[in-house]
Design a protein around this nucleic acid. Sequence first.
RNA 1: CGAAGCAGCACAGGUGGUCGCUCGCCUUACGGCGGGAGGAAAGUCCGAGCUCCAAAGGGCAAGGCGCUCUGUAACGCAGAGUCCCGGUGACGGGAAGGAAAGUGCCACAGAAAGGGAAACCACUCCGGCUUUUGCCGGAGAAAGGGUGAAAAGGCGUCCCGAUUUAUCGGGAGCUGUCUGUUAAAGGCAGCAGGUAAGAGCUCACCAGUGCCCCGGGUGACCGGGCGCUUGGUAAACCCCGCCUGGAGCAAGGCCAAAUAGGUUCCGCCUUGAGAGGGGCCCCCUCAAAUCCCCGUACUGCGGGGAGACGGAACGGGUUAGGCCGCAAGACCUCGUACAACACGGGGCACAGAUGAAUGACCACGCCCUGUAUAUCAGGGAACAGAACUCGGCUUAUGGGCUGCUUCGGCAG
RNA 2: CGGGGCGUAGCGCAGCUUGGUAGCGCACUCGCUUGGGGUGCGAGUGGUCGCCUGUUCAAAUCAGGUCGCCCCGA
Length: 118
Amino acid sequence: MYCPLVKKGDFKRVFETGRRFSSKYLVVYALPNGLDFSRLGLSVSKKTGSAVIRNKIKRRLRESVRKRLAEKPLRYDIVIVARTAAAGAPFADLDRMIAKTFAGLVNEDTTDSNRKAI
RNA sequence: CGAAGCAGCACAGGUGGUCGCUCGCCUUACGGCGGGAGGAAAGUCCGAGCUCCAAAGGGCAAGGCGCUCUGUAACGCAGAGUCCCGGUGACGGGAAGGAAAGUGCCACAGAAAGGGAAACCACUCCGGCUUUUGCCGGAGAAAGGGUGAAAAGGCGUCCCGAUUUAUCGGGAGCUGUCUGUUAAAGGCAGCAGGUAAGAGCUCACCAGUGCCCCGGGUGACCGGGCGCUUGGUAAACCCCGCCUGGAGCAAGGCCAAAUAGGUUCCGCCUUGAGAGGGGCCCCCUCAAAUCCCCGUACUGCGGGGAGACGGAACGGGUUAGGCCGCAAGACCUCGUACAACACGGGGCACAGAUGAAUGACCACGCCCUGUAUAUCAGGGAACAGAACUCGGCUUAUGGGCUGCUUCGGCAG
RNA sequence: CGGGGCGUAGCGCAGCUUGGUAGCGCACUCGCUUGGGGUGCGAGUGGUCGCCUGUUCAAAUCAGGUCGCCCCGA
């Protein structure tokens, strides 16, 4: 279960206070959100490529995150920034990185996160 | 066979399965069924629809367009033509009105670059001087020389013979034009008058040009006659003709919530202005009032006052808030008509997201690459992703097919 | 959706308005100066003016198209 991350302030909070995982193709920021589901934000720079390439990267990342969250439901605000190398990456590599990153995340105590959210 | 030039066509990797996204419909719900990127969706270069604002009219400014006719909702688009340029040719390219309304510019060189008494050298004739060479003066100004992109349109040649000594005949050649050809070719016209010699004079031909005439064409323009000989540049200013109100779906409409300022009224305090309209002007429209107070003879007339602060109500803006706008045609094809187009018949399709939907995996077959082959391995090719909707233009781009035409070579 | 600007030598810029010679600084090379280096002085090398087409006798400059980059407004 997830929904898109929308607000500019939410992005800013995740960038500044969230955990950071870097890899060849991606930079992933994650922050517990205190909700019953995760929210996903994607950032692909115009320098990465044309609209077609950028769309393809976002679709692949969305697909990968959907599959990983189905296996392991997290309650995080996640922002994934694609690096320029992600344009030519095979889907299997991207998926492996997402899975590896999610393996390092654990849901926090519910009451604690609720207090934070409010 | 080789080289080249046009025109057109369809495609944009297929089928099946699993999981997932988005929209619509059905269902109480679980869920089910169906739709889901392109030829350029791109660039945003034109033209329209649609929406809001403005709008009596005229002029100016600004911007755009600029051969003709036709088509179209419209266009800077298209079709058919005209003229010019390039190409042996098929064919390609052209912002192609006006330089005789005016202004400006034309570097360097050159006497001179737009009106300059067209200069200099050299030249011809006449007169004078001189042994000659030559010098001086006058007249003439064509051919020749030098600069430059351009010097005031170009061109009128040569030989033989005869004689009436400026004409005739013959030949070659040149120029122009016509016919025809792949090419060679052929026909016609001109090559003259004048003069000391010549010419810018007369004449012939060609070129250019004209608010001239005749003929053809809807027209651009073409052909002929007549007149004239005028440098180029308007993608320099400009002139002429035609067109253009402004903004854009974040247009615009409705709804919701919260808050500071705005308008009206009340209280309190106190003393200020015509407003609106398009880029501007003439001007036009609405106003020159209303309310309160005072004076006076009711209407009326004269004089004075109204903005800040607090409360209430109202309507706008903001909050990337929600809904609507927001989804079947200026389409394709066949026939008629010279083409675009129009008319008639038939056919087909018709995404609506909003931090923004098309993806991932598997199987089969197909294509490409690697390897001697099979197996096998890798990849699915190019350009590229709708954002209110259409008609065009431009640009990017894969492999393939079809038709026509031109030039050259070889063979029959 | 609307508007504006830039592209010239390895780098940063001028020249474009009013068309005829492409220039400045740094950098680079050589020489002088110094015992040597730096500094300084002098000389020199180096540019398809983003690309295509056109106008013109002549285009970095004018016109049209195109490509790339940057900025602004709603």
